[in-house]
Amino acid sequence: MAWLPGSRQISAIKAAVFAFALLPFLRLAWGAFSGGLGTNPIETLTRDTGWWCLFMLLATLALTPLRKLAGLHWVLRMRRMLGLYAFFYGALHFTTFIWFDHWFDLMEMFKDVIKRPFITVGFIAFIIMLPLALTSTNAMVRRLGGRNWQRLHRLVYLVPVLGVLHYWWLVKADVREPLIFGALLALLLGLRLWWRLRDRRPGLAQPSVR
């Protein structure tokens, strides 16, 4: 029998996850302030915010498999928070781009977005995250209706795919890290596909309810 935390425990876990997910930001902020981000601090900021955005996206996508495979239903209660953290780091990443790379010159920025495929896909990923973040509140779920809301939020599967592509197209020769991110993503999405196909097959028992 999987562990079932009570509501107070859930709150405590949420608070802990919130704090842990905030740590990278605090570390970067402190590093930027104290000169602790290495020789090229702007590169560090840019790369790390993108890295953590991908990390949070994968963490968000890992919750459903965790629920199904380990029977930990309560982990889904972390999903909105982790998703919003992905948006948070994505927004910081976008900020480094428009600030440090383009010095807030919007025209130049859009030229870059159109001209360079790796930026194009990164930008699209960020734009997709916007409506998801904006409609993440309970009130918005009610306003849109559960079904519409869910349809909209399926877009979330696209974001890390674009994110991995963005990273893959950026690196010069060493593709190990994008490859690892990509493999994890393929696993998380592959599991979903497998479950879908399995559950759809006629004549088989419905998925067991745990």
């Binding site: 990278p24 970067l28 602790g36 290495g38 790369r47 790390d48 890295w51 190990r176 890290e177 690892i180």
Partner: peptide, 16 residues
């Protein structure tokens, strides 16, 4: 082979 990867750069820059 692996430790060069899957670590954010800020961590690498500090441990380096």
């Amino acid at each position: 082979g692996l430790a060069g990867t899957m670590l954010p750069q800020s961590v690498r820059a500090q441990t380096a």
